[in-house]
Amino acid sequence: MDFPRYRLFEHTADLGIEIFGADPGELLQNGVHALFDLMTDLEAVRPERTWRFSVDGTAWDDLLVNLLREVLYRASAEGVLFRDFTIEDLAEYRVTGTGRGEFFDPQRHRMEMEIKAVTYHGLDVVRTGTGWKGRVICDV
């Protein structure tokens, strides 16, 4: 892979994330990675348990936001930290996959940042010359 999985862009009050992938599936996986990489130290998250779920949307950008909203809910409400997310089935516009990780343990995990929500503001997913690129702004 000759591009980063994600990078941040400037937004005054909130957090802008640019996500990359060779295809829509990798873009979605990297979106989940970005969220948890920003929230905590992923090296400390053990792949102890799995959570399987499906999310749908009306377009790739809508699917990206809905997937990120889903994993953010699980993190905020249930204390789940996903180390990675593997896609089992992907169609236009529905994804089924399995997240691997564990529950937040204050003894071993550090929360670097609270991401309150994934917004629709400035949301974009486009095909580029080298792959796919998504932009989301999160409320922090």
Binding site: A117, Y120, H121
Partner: peptide, 23 residues
């Protein structure tokens, strides 16, 4: 907020006015 935004975003195509930002 998240629940109702998602609900209202789904309805954007049926609105009879232009919305410059989905948020």
């Amino acid at each position: 907020c998240d629940d109702f935004l998602a609900r209202m975003v789904k309805k954007i195509p049926s609105l009879d006015f232009y919305l410059p930002d989905r948020q």
